[in-house]
Amino acid sequence: MSYDDIIHMKHPTSPHHPRMSMNNRAAQFAPFAALKTHVDKISEAGRLTTQKRILDEDQRQILNRVLSDLLIHKKEYPFITVDYFVEDEYKEGGSYMTVRGQFKDIDEINKRVILLDKTTIPIDDIYHISNSLCKAD
């Protein structure tokens, strides 16, 4: 299809109405952006979160014993598996994550477990930890 007959014509301009600014032209499409926000809110409302589980005294003692064993054997960089709670940024609650890696140390000031790959996990958020030295079940 050839447009030779119109390609060099001047753009039509109304003698009665001024040209619309780019901002006003863009504003014509703003209602579609509102629909996207509404869909996002519906998706967010449907996303489930979990409440943080509180360790009882026995579970806390087991966790402390495992952390002490890890400190004793830290030069061996034992492999560990940690289940811990991650607070949700937008809603009440959060979710549980599992991370596997080699134990490096404990940051006692900030109360965090440090893995060899520099991952850090807040000790207060740990629900369960097991390692290659012993199991904490």
Rank of each mutant, 00 (worst) to 15 (best):
residue 22 M to V: 11
residue 36 K to W: 06
residue 105 D to P: 00
residue 45 A to W: 03
residue 27 A to E: 07
residue 107 D to K: 01
residue 104 K to R: 11
residue 131 N to R: 09
residue 80 I to H: 01
residue 100 R to W: 10
residue 73 H to G: 06
residue 63 L to R: 05
residue 136 A to V: 08
residue 110 N to W: 02
residue 71 L to H: 06
residue 40 D to S: 05
residue 65 R to Y: 02
residue 57 E to A: 11
residue 32 F to M: 10
residue 77 Y to T: 08
residue 85 F to E: 06
residue 98 T to F: 09
residue 55 L to C: 01
residue 114 I to W: 02
residue 89 E to R: 11
residue 7 I to S: 09
residue 46 G to M: 10
residue 57 E to Y: 05
residue 44 E to Y: 05
residue 82 V to S: 12
residue 112 R to S: 02
residue 27 A to I: 07
residue 13 T to Y: 03
residue 47 R to E: 10
residue 39 V to P: 00
residue 55 L to K: 04
residue 102 Q to D: 07
residue 132 S to L: 14
residue 113 V to W: 03
residue 44 E to L: 14
residue 88 D to R: 04
residue 75 K to E: 15
residue 115 L to F: 06
residue 25 R to C: 03
residue 53 R to K: 12
residue 122 P to H: 02
residue 92 E to S: 13
residue 66 V to M: 08
residue 2 S to M: 10
residue 77 Y to I: 08
residue 8 H to I: 07
residue 42 I to A: 04
residue 134 C to V: 15
residue 72 I to D: 11
residue 36 K to P: 00
residue 107 D to P: 00
residue 36 K to N: 08
residue 132 S to G: 12
residue 56 D to L: 10
residue 63 L to V: 01
residue 2 S to P: 01
residue 11 H to A: 09
residue 2 S to F: 09
residue 84 Y to L: 14
